[in-house]
Design a protein around this nucleic acid. Sequence first.
DNA 1: TTGTAAGCGTTATCAG
DNA 2: CTGATAACGCTTACAA
Lengths: 343, 343
Amino acid sequence: MAANIHELARLSGVSPATVSRVFNGYPDVSDATRERVLEHARRLDYTPSAAARSLVRQRSQLIGVILHTGLAHPDLQHPFFQDVLVALKNTVGRAGYDLLLFATDQPLAEPTPHSYEKRIRHQGVDGVVLMGLDTRDPDLAKIAALRIPTVAIDTEIRGPRAAAVGSDNVAGARLAVRHLHLLGHTRIATIAGPTDTAPGADRLLGFRQELEELGLPAEARYLLDGDFYAESGYAAMNVLLALTDPPTAVFVAADLMAVGALRAIQEAGLRCPEDIAVVGFDDIQIASLLMPALTTVRQDKGLIGTTAAEALVAMIDDPALRPEAKTLPVELVVRDSCGSGRS
Amino acid sequence: MAANIHELARLSGVSPATVSRVFNGYPDVSDATRERVLEHARRLDYTPSAAARSLVRQRSQLIGVILHTGLAHPDLQHPFFQDVLVALKNTVGRAGYDLLLFATDQPLAEPTPHSYEKRIRHQGVDGVVLMGLDTRDPDLAKIAALRIPTVAIDTEIRGPRAAAVGSDNVAGARLAVRHLHLLGHTRIATIAGPTDTAPGADRLLGFRQELEELGLPAEARYLLDGDFYAESGYAAMNVLLALTDPPTAVFVAADLMAVGALRAIQEAGLRCPEDIAVVGFDDIQIASLLMPALTTVRQDKGLIGTTAAEALVAMIDDPALRPEAKTLPVELVVRDSCGSGRS
DNA sequence: TTGTAAGCGTTATCAG
DNA sequence: CTGATAACGCTTACAA
């Protein structure tokens, strides 16, 4: 059915080698020959086989993407990842790569490769992008040891060919806290993300650092845990509101959690920002349309994806390149949920 | 570096053919041999090459996923698609397939395959999933003509090996309208999705059908267009509110648009549901945490993904299987945004 | 500028 | 139960 290079060569009256040259853009083919081959290719609707090409070239033109989608952290479902994925897809696409999304890591029939690290080698991907992996995920080290160009998003990673890309979570958290303090708040709480993720840990770190710099105490009861998802923000805020001396402001480490927090506030008959100010993190699509519009720390998700893609392609192109971690700037977007100062 | 089957065969003292048998789970290998091969494989950390295997088997164990991510419809960014993608990934993963996410279709260097249809053939994917394609996208027909097992999500498609999977959008819309009418509403508007998408068109159709069945007029000024995203819901609702006789209820064809609509209502100093009732569609993660909690038509996104995956795998396994369109049931989830009846 | 031929790492067919 | 051997479709020296 599908024509191959021999068939096309035969019809064009040339050798397969010449056809190959044409399709790989080699200059040393006469224009006449090139035209003839291209013409026949069009008629045959010829498309070279990626498998055959990968085999001989030892290059797959594939970027493996690993998203941890365990039950505990269904990360692909977090809006953050979609934006990054789109940017990634577009940028590597421009460089001639496609994305291979690794499917479940549940054990399959025995001899089938199932660990991420095996799958990476099995598919012979030219580069790897890691998203949503816990900082201490055992796969991290195994993958880094592969010496395949790797970029980890929002995760620390060490290895000769591995780089991390992420937002400046510490600075972002500090920005948020500082802003709240500037507005007059001193009883500032946080609803943190999981501390076994880099964003979770770093945003908490920034929260503490800024509190300390401002001379404010970091009280344990003002320090709640969430999982980055909406329900956990709702639950945590309810705990805060039940305190005898609830905070007047809360730094919520993710917008999605802030949605839940906002609801808890309103359900309690309180108002945001009058009774309690909220600052989120991420600037997801709906942040500006919530009531009140959410003040938040904006991550440039597109830039994260683009940066990761570019770093990856650069590493693939230059085997000697030693990757460096990239921390991208964030920005405080002031809207209504933090009010304009304590009255 | 990476050991191949010959190396492993040599070390194990058998032929490559036997190693192949072991790794493909053929029964006709003595236990002793099998053990020996497996043992050496472990020591070598051997992983078979997907490219070589695809080449000889003419099977890639890859499912191509195409998401239309044009500027007009950044569909991957819609929460709906993430959930579907996760379910898809898990289900096909269990059957031994990985997902190939096709990157940008912007033209690349000339001879490189760039149209989706070419890329599908280039990669030799065993099946294709289409998401977010407009009903009349020209790629649709080309892909369907490929005779590669294909499943289109939320898009009509015709072809011997192509099936559509989607929610019952018509029934869902009717459910919503009927519910509003039951609550006493007669001036019911809709903020529709793009009518060149199946969900957009069908939800509008259902809206109209139910209105007609209820003997209610479908007035043009109560019929607004949106693009499934939040901002468009905000804009459309503002138009509705500016009418001299605004509707008392609105069926919004997507939850994300409903978020915007809710904000417009509140900004106008009106209350939902007291002044205007809202019913959404999708039941996205935050729907239950909005204020008011959103009444909506729930799609089972996981089921859509799973169903698509299963249909695809079934088609791949059985070349004679004629696919049939699958329309999955939806469910009205009553929360607070529609009130409990007109007072 | 073009052709020949070897080889990329597997699997499948056919003997034994 | 196991081993040769011939593909699979392409690229790439090396020759011409």
